[in-house]
Amino acid sequence: SEEWVEIALRLLELGREANINGTILNLHKEEIEELIRRLLKRI
């Protein structure tokens, strides 16, 4: 399964939302940290 691709796409999506909203992603901080942890486990 290409889970890391899904994770990377989700991170990009959150990054785009952050640019549009001008936020520092506090809302998504925990989700982002969890996604990155899952991503690093696969490398």
Results as ranks from 00 to 15, higher is better:
13 E>F: 11
31 E>I: 12
9 L>Q: 05
19 N>S: 15
43 I>F: 07
22 G>R: 04
28 H>F: 15
36 I>D: 00
7 I>C: 15
25 L>N: 09
13 E>T: 03
16 R>I: 13
40 L>D: 03
14 L>K: 01
10 R>W: 11
33 E>L: 14
22 G>I: 14
15 G>D: 03
35 L>K: 01
23 T>F: 12
5 V>N: 02
33 E>C: 15
1 S>H: 13
9 L>S: 03
32 I>N: 00
32 I>E: 00
38 R>K: 08
40 L>S: 03
9 L>A: 04
13 E>N: 01
20 I>Y: 05
6 E>P: 02
12 L>Q: 02
24 I>S: 11
43 I>L: 12
6 E>W: 11
7 I>F: 04
1 S>C: 15
2 E>Q: 10
33 E>D: 07
41 K>G: 07
27 L>Q: 12
18 A>N: 03
42 R>I: 14
16 R>G: 10
27 L>T: 11
41 K>M: 10
12 L>H: 03
41 K>T: 10
10 R>S: 02
27 L>M: 12
31 E>S: 01
38 R>T: 05
24 I>P: 05
14 L>D: 01
38 R>S: 07
2 E>F: 14
29 K>D: 09
20 I>V: 07
27 L>F: 08
23 T>G: 12
11 L>P: 00
36 I>R: 00
17 E>I: 08
36 I>W: 03
6 E>L: 12
7 I>H: 00
16 R>E: 05
24 I>A: 05
30 E>Y: 04
34 E>T: 07
5 V>I: 07
21 N>F: 15
14 L>H: 03
11 L>F: 07
21 N>R: 07
31 E>T: 01
34 E>P: 00
17 E>D: 07
23 T>Y: 14
39 L>M: 06
4 W>R: 02
33 E>Y: 13
43 I>R: 01
31 E>D: 05
24 I>W: 12
1 S>I: 13
33 E>V: 13
22 G>A: 12
32 I>C: 13
6 E>G: 06
32 I>F: 08
37 R>M: 06
7 I>Q: 01
14 L>C: 14
27 L>I: 12
36 I>C: 08
33 E>G: 04
14 L>I: 11
19 N>Y: 14
26 N>C: 15
13 E>S: 03
26 N>K: 02
2 E>Y: 13
20 I>L: 11
8 A>K: 03
30 E>W: 04
43 I>E: 02
27 L>V: 05
3 E>P: 06
6 E>H: 11
1 S>T: 09
9 L>D: 02
26 N>I: 11
23 T>V: 09
17 E>W: 09
8 A>R: 03
34 E>M: 07
17 E>R: 12
22 G>K: 12
6 E>I: 11
9 L>G: 03
29 K>V: 15
1 S>M: 13
37 R>V: 03
15 G>Q: 04
2 E>S: 09
41 K>Y: 08
27 L>Y: 09
16 R>M: 08
26 N>F: 14
31 E>C: 15
24 I>C: 15
15 G>I: 15
42 R>D: 11
22 G>N: 11
1 S>D: 10
12 L>K: 02
8 A>G: 03
19 N>D: 08
18 A>F: 09
1 S>Y: 13
19 N>L: 15
28 H>S: 14
7 I>R: 01
12 L>I: 13
18 A>K: 03
21 N>I: 15
17 E>K: 05
10 R>Q: 04
26 N>R: 01
9 L>R: 07
4 W>A: 02
26 N>P: 09
17 E>M: 13
28 H>W: 15
23 T>R: 04
14 L>G: 02
24 I>M: 05
36 I>A: 01
41 K>E: 13
16 R>A: 07
39 L>D: 00
43 I>G: 03
12 L>Y: 03
19 N>M: 15
13 E>P: 01
20 I>W: 10
31 E>W: 13
28 H>M: 15
30 E>A: 07
40 L>V: 10
14 L>Q: 02
29 K>C: 15
1 S>L: 15
39 L>K: 00
9 L>V: 06
17 E>P: 07
16 R>D: 03
42 R>Y: 15
1 S>W: 15
14 L>R: 02
4 W>M: 09
32 I>V: 09
19 N>A: 14
26 N>A: 08
6 E>Q: 07
8 A>W: 12
37 R>L: 05
41 K>V: 10
26 N>L: 13
4 W>E: 01
15 G>K: 02
36 I>V: 08
19 N>F: 15
40 L>T: 01
11 L>T: 00
15 G>V: 15
36 I>T: 01
36 I>S: 00
12 L>A: 03
23 T>A: 11
18 A>Q: 04
36 I>K: 00
23 T>D: 11
18 A>M: 09
4 W>S: 01
31 E>R: 02
23 T>W: 12
24 I>R: 04
28 H>R: 02
31 E>H: 09
22 G>M: 11
1 S>A: 09
42 R>E: 11
35 L>A: 04
37 R>F: 09
5 V>W: 14
41 K>S: 08
3 E>R: 13
43 I>N: 05
16 R>V: 11
29 K>A: 14
5 V>K: 04
7 I>W: 06
19 N>T: 13
36 I>N: 00
1 S>N: 05
2 E>W: 15
38 R>L: 08
2 E>I: 14
35 L>Y: 02
11 L>R: 00
10 R>L: 10
43 I>T: 02
35 L>N: 00
7 I>K: 02
34 E>R: 10
6 E>D: 06
3 E>S: 15
14 L>T: 02
29 K>W: 15
23 T>K: 10
14 L>M: 04
32 I>D: 00
25 L>Q: 10
22 G>L: 14
20 I>E: 05
31 E>G: 03
42 R>Q: 09
42 R>A: 14
35 L>G: 00
22 G>S: 05
17 E>N: 08
13 E>R: 04
20 I>A: 06
5 V>A: 05
6 E>S: 11
9 L>P: 00
27 L>G: 12
41 K>A: 12
11 L>K: 00
19 N>E: 10
14 L>W: 10
21 N>E: 05
29 K>N: 13
15 G>W: 15
28 H>I: 15
7 I>L: 08
32 I>Q: 00
29 K>M: 15
38 R>G: 07
32 I>S: 00
39 L>A: 04
25 L>T: 14
40 L>F: 06
28 H>E: 09
36 I>G: 01
5 V>Q: 05
19 N>V: 15
32 I>G: 00
35 L>E: 01
27 L>N: 10
17 E>V: 09
16 R>S: 10
42 R>G: 11
19 N>P: 04
1 S>R: 07
20 I>D: 05
30 E>D: 13
43 I>M: 06
41 K>L: 08
26 N>M: 07
16 R>H: 10
2 E>A: 12
20 I>G: 05
6 E>T: 08
25 L>S: 14
41 K>Q: 09
35 L>T: 01
16 R>C: 15
32 I>M: 04
23 T>C: 15
24 I>T: 02
34 E>H: 07
18 A>W: 09
30 E>T: 09
20 I>S: 08
23 T>S: 13
24 I>D: 13
3 E>M: 07
3 E>D: 11
6 E>V: 12
3 E>G: 12
41 K>P: 05
31 E>V: 12
36 I>P: 00
5 V>R: 06
6 E>C: 15
24 I>K: 03
34 E>S: 06
10 R>H: 11
33 E>P: 01
13 E>G: 12
34 E>F: 04
12 L>E: 04
25 L>W: 04
30 E>F: 07
15 G>C: 14
22 G>H: 06
34 E>Y: 08
12 L>W: 06
7 I>A: 04
42 R>V: 14
26 N>D: 13
33 E>K: 10
22 G>F: 04
30 E>R: 08
14 L>F: 05
21 N>H: 06
30 E>K: 14
8 A>Q: 03
41 K>F: 08
30 E>L: 07
5 V>G: 02
43 I>W: 10
29 K>L: 15
39 L>S: 00
20 I>F: 10
19 N>G: 08
22 G>V: 12
4 W>I: 09
9 L>N: 06
33 E>M: 12
29 K>R: 10
2 E>K: 13
21 N>D: 10
27 L>P: 09
16 R>T: 05
41 K>W: 07
16 R>N: 08
17 E>T: 07
19 N>R: 12
20 I>H: 06
14 L>V: 06
13 E>W: 10
42 R>F: 14
20 I>R: 08
3 E>T: 09
31 E>A: 11
22 G>Q: 08
7 I>Y: 02
36 I>Q: 00
13 E>I: 08
20 I>P: 05
11 L>D: 00
10 R>F: 13
13 E>K: 03
17 E>S: 09
3 E>V: 11
27 L>H: 13
25 L>A: 13
18 A>S: 05
4 W>H: 01
14 L>Y: 06
25 L>V: 10
38 R>D: 06
40 L>M: 08
39 L>Y: 04
7 I>N: 00
40 L>E: 05
5 V>F: 11
4 W>L: 09
11 L>H: 00
3 E>H: 13
39 L>H: 01
28 H>Y: 13
40 L>Q: 05
28 H>K: 07
